[in-house]
């Protein structure tokens, strides 16, 4: 199982990567951690003529808080997110999700931006980005634009990324002090891609849930925000009847496809289970506010 031949170039700037993408068109692929790409090359599922190694682009590195945002450079590795004190402090959703991303050796190499750009529908980071209202910074080295994560994922492995663009960073607005997060995922074995997963966010103020985000993964071609379920919960106390109303709404807004081991109907059922459990862990227990 050996990869087909390809050329390899390292670049040090977004502009250089973008220029090579324009020059080589479909034949070129970006490589950062390569944790998905190299497996597909070994299987000869794709045969690029050129790999552009972007790991050396300085502006895509790092995790920092700037201008009211938590900025995660696209080249930050999963392990960097997992271990980041800034992330734990400001966006614990990502800290909760990180241990679910494959296994330690993969997390040491795979990148945050790479996972979002690849947009696997069962991956954790795209759903987290949507749930935390992230914006993606896209650039071709000359022009930069910002796209809401919610608008970025267009379909199965399809994104708003143009052929010569790179995700350079992901910007998360710093959540207010009432913002809470929860993350829950079912997989056949720990570390596998999710059967169904759920990223949750919401403000818990005086016993009521406001502005919730309910974002599923593994149930469609993209992360799926369950807007009607959010509406059912918004402003309420998340008591059992409300929660059941929200769960009932899922049938109308999720249309999962079955995968190898789980049927569409079961995925929908599991989405309801995860919502009940996720909300339980989102809202504080008795005596907390």
């Amino acid at each position: 199982m050996k990869a087909p031949p390809f050329a390899y170039r390292r670049v040090a700037s977004v502009a250089a990567a973008s220029a090579l993408l324009r020059e080589h068109g479909d034949g070129a692929r970006l490589i950062a951690g390569g944790q998905t790409l190299l497996a597909t090359l070994g299987m000869r599922l794709s045969e690029p003529s050129l790999l552009i190694d972007i790991r050396g682009i300085a502006e895509m590195q790092g995790i920092a808080v700037t201008g009211g945002h938590l900025r995660i450079g696209a080249l930050a590795r999963h392990v960097d997110v997992e271990r980041s004190a800034l992330v734990a402090q400001h966006l614990p959703l990502l800290s909760l999700a990180a241990p679910h991303v494959a296994h330690a050796a993969i997390r040491n190499r795979g990148t945050f931006g790479g996972s979002i750009a690849f947009a696997d529908p069962a991956a954790e980071w795209p759903a987290c980005a949507v749930a935390a209202d992230a914006a993606l910074v896209l650039s071709d080295g000359t022009t930069s634009r910002t796209v809401e994560a919610a608008d970025f994922f267009l379909g199965l492995y399809q994104t708003d990324l143009r052929p010569d663009e790179l995700i350079t960073a992901v910007r998360f607005p710093l959540p207010g002090r009432h913002r809470r997060f929860a993350f829950t995922e079912l997989a056949r074995r720990h570390g596998d891609y999710a059967t169904v997963g759920l990223a949750l966010a919401g403000d818990w103020v005086e016993g009521r849930l406001h502005d919730p985000r309910i974002v599923y993964f593994g149930v469609g071609g993209t992360p799926v925000r369950a807007v009607a379920a959010e509406a059912a919960l918004a402003g309420g106390r998340a008591e059992p009847e409300t929660l059941e109303r929200a769960v009932a709404e899922l049938g109308g807004e999720l249309s999962p496809s079955g995968d190898l081991y789980t049927s569409a109907a079961t995925k929908l059922h599991l989405a309801g289970v995860l919502l009940r459990r996720g909300i339980q862990s989102l809202i504080p227990g008795e005596g907390q506010t």
Binding site: R55, N108, R109
Partner: peptide, 19 residues
């Protein structure tokens, strides 16, 4: 195929030697 690269474990089959 796990090996250690710059003090961290990685999959050597998912790492290009040129990388």
């Amino acid at each position: 195929c796990t090996v250690v690269v710059d003090d961290e474990i990685v999959r050597s089959c998912l790492t290009l030697a040129v990388q």
